[in-house]
Every structure is written in structure tokens, then in C-alpha cells.
């Protein structure tokens, strides 16, 4: 496989425009205290509030086709895709390259959505609703894929691309191993594209991504250790490439109490120490805390390197979190979940 090379690298001033722009965009994100207030609003009030924010265009455009939860869900996804595409469009050289490299995760997301949709026999219009064309694959291409008849047709459309090796793992019975392979491929590609260069910017991106892999693996460990899954199975599911990979994979299969004691002293421990106990009821609370830690980490790093990819990265992570928070709130309210339960899932950095 050819190794991608960065076009040019090393000049922080190339980042001045895009970092200035994302810092201005950051001020337009939904403020943290709004989430608590949204909890007390009904759907139309939330939609009206979002209409006053950056989601205005999407809410206006979609409000004739959808209403209530559906409207908010589609508007948030459409806005996410638009925002990320804009970031990629307005940047040049190294920032553009690195942003695209990060955004490939939405390609993976879309492929997963397509496969899952087809697997459970959803209609193509239903599938296209949940696509987020923020990555490299164009909306037209994705829609075309959604119209295909079977999973094997979709898989064969990716022949000759990097995805084909991961998609070849499809055995016709379940998607879990395939999805895991796609995740691993994403991080592998990122490492291959960014890690092999001497670029400062790429190194910083990688530093964040390594931490992200650790956190994802940690969440997997929390889930599986809690459920008492066999160590070998857990290790199979861990994504390689994290900074703490060896240490975390050693923790696989440990009894839960011992596992928790082993985590003390790691940098992320302070953000979960008060709720991580042996009688932990829901891992999703830990997950929300760890996500928040990751956002803080990205912004903290960006203070050390103000003219680098990190402010952009911090913005992208914050934006993703904002969209998922809004969706959690509206979905949770729709399902009639108690407010405390929703509040626990909302990630506030």
C-alpha cells in the first residue's frame, strides 16, 4: 500500500486562518448550561431554541418535511456534516490533510450505518436519513450505495479501496467483527498517513488520537470486565495503537475491583474516581465522564500549541459531542426517560 505523504509541513502560520476561524466558531456552540434548560423544554421549544443558533438553516429547510424529534435529529446531523465539510473546504495544505484524515471516521460511520441498515432490511430512504456525509465519501456515492440491494453489493463497491480488507471479514451472520475491523482500519490508516512523517502537526494529531484509542479501549474494558467476559475475547476487541495499549490489554479479564484499583494513578482517573466503584450500575456514566475528559484534553493540548491542528480538533470533538448531547436529550425525552438519567449521559466538558 502506498504511504501517503504530507504535502508541506512545519509552518505554524498555515494554521492561523483555520484556528482563528474555529475559535470564532467555538463561541457559537451551545453553552453547557443550555443542556439543563433543554431538559425542561418540549420538542417544539427545543427546535425553536436551535433555530436561534447555528442550526437555523437546517431547521428551516427540514421543518416542512419533519417535525419533533425527527426534525431535530436530521437538522443536527445535516449541520454536523455541513460544518465539517466547511472546515475541510476552508483549509489548505497540512491542516486540510489532517482534518480529512480525522473526518474519515464519518466514512466509517456511514459504511457501518449502510451495512447495519441493509442487514436489518431497512428501506434506502430510511438509511439515507442517518448518513452523515462529513468525510471523504460524497453524499451522492453514499446514496447510490443505500439503493443497492444487498450487503454484498455494498461491499463489492469498495473493491480496490483500503476498506476492502476490513469488509472482506463479513461472514453473513453478524456485523460485530466487521465493525471492529473498520474501527481498527480507521486508526491504522490514520497512523500510516500521519505517523510516518516528520510533521509537527501530524504528531500532535496522533498524540490526541492515541489518547482517544486508550479511552475507547478503556470503555470496552469497563463494559466487558463488568460483564465478566473472557480475557482473550476482550483483547480481540481492543483497538491497537494506543499509548497504554500493553497496560490496558493486561487489564483485560481482571475482576472488576482489581481492574479499578489498577486504574488509579492514570491521568484520566481523577475524572471518574468519584463514580467508579465496584457496585457501578451503568457504564454509560463512566463513558460520559471519559468523553468529557477527552474534550478537555484536546483543548488543554491546544493551549500548548495554539497554532496547530489541535484547536481544530478540539472544535470538531466539541461539535460532535454537542450534536450527540442534543440527540440524547431529545431521544431521551421522547422515550420518557427520567431527567436524571438523561443528564448523566450528557457530556459536559
Amino acid at each position: 500500500m502506498p504511504v501517503l505523504r504530507l504535502p508541506k509541513f512545519g509552518y505554524p502560520v498555515k494554521y492561523a486562518y483555520i484556528t482563528g476561524r474555529v475559535r470564532a466558531m467555538k463561541t457559537k456552540l451551545v453553552p453547557a448550561e443550555m443542556y439543563a434548560r433543554m431538559m425542561g423544554m418540549d420538542m417544539s421549544e427545543i427546535a425553536r431554541y436551535l433555530e436561534e443558533t447555528q442550526y437555523k438553516d437546517e431547521i428551516d429547510a427540514l421543518s416542512k418535511d419533519y417535525s419533533g424529534v425527527e426534525l431535530i435529529e436530521h437538522a443536527t446531523f445535516a449541520n454536523l456534516a455541513k460544518t465539517f465539510r466547511k472546515l475541510e473546504r476552508v483549509s489548505i495544505d497540512e491542516p486540510s490533510f489532517l482534518i480529512l484524515e480525522y473526518l474519515r471516521r464519518w466514512d466509517v460511520w456511514n459504511i457501518k450505518t449502510l451495512l447495519r441498515g441493509k442487514f436489518y432490511g431497512a428501506a434506502d430512504t430510511e438509511i439515507t436519513k442517518y448518513l452523515v456525509p462529513a468525510g471523504e465519501l460524497s453524499p451522492e456515492f453514499l446514496e447510490e450505495l443505500a439503493k443497492k440491494d444487498s450487503i454484498t453489493d455494498i461491499i463489492s463497491a469498495f473493491d480496490g479501496t483500503d476498506y476492502s480488507s476490513a469488509l472482506a471479514q463479513y461472514d453473513g451472520k453478524n456485523l460485530a467483527s466487521l465493525e471492529n475491523a473498520l474501527d481498527k482500519l480507521y486508526y491504522f490508516r490514520m497512523e500510516r498517513a500521519v505517523g510516518g512523517t516528520l510533521s509537527v502537526g501530524g504528531g500532535l494529531l496522533l498524540k490526541y488520537v492515541r489518547r482517544e484509542i486508550d479511552i475507547r479501549n478503556l470503555i470496552t474494558l469497563f463494559r466487558m470486565n463488568k460483564a465478566g467476559v473472557d480475557a482473550a475475547v476482550i483483547q480481540e476487541n481492543l483497538i491497537p495503537g494506543g499509548k497504554l495499549h500493553e497496560e490496558l490489554s493486561r487489564m483485560a479479564g481482571q475482576p472488576f475491583g482489581e481492574f479499578l484499583r489498577g486504574l488509579e494513578g492514570y491521568p484520566f482517573w481523577s475524572s471518574i474516581s468519584d463514580i467508579a466503584s465496584v457496585d457501578l450500575d451503568a457504564v454509560s456514566r463512566i463513558e460520559a465522564r471519559l468523553r468529557a475528559y477527552l474534550i478537555r484534553y484536546a483543548w488543554a493540548l491546544s493551549n500548548y500549541h495554539p497554532l496547530s491542528i489541535l484547536p481544530v480538533l478540539g472544535y470538531m470533538v466539541s461539535k460532535e459531542t454537542e450534536v450527540s448531547n442534543i440527540r440524547k436529550i431529545v431521544r431521551g425525552k421522547e422515550a420518557g426517560l427520567p431527567a436524571e438519567l438523561i443528564e448523566e449521559q450528557v457530556v459536559v466538558a
Partner: peptide, 17 residues
Amino acid sequence: QGIGAAVVGVVAEEPGF
């Protein structure tokens, strides 16, 4: 050069700046 680029970036989002 850096300041100018950053200012243009911010003004693109916030004309009031």
C-alpha cells in the same frame, strides 16, 4: 502575516470582530 490570516478567519465567522 499570521495575525492577518487569523483575523480574516475570525471575521469570516464574526463580522463584528
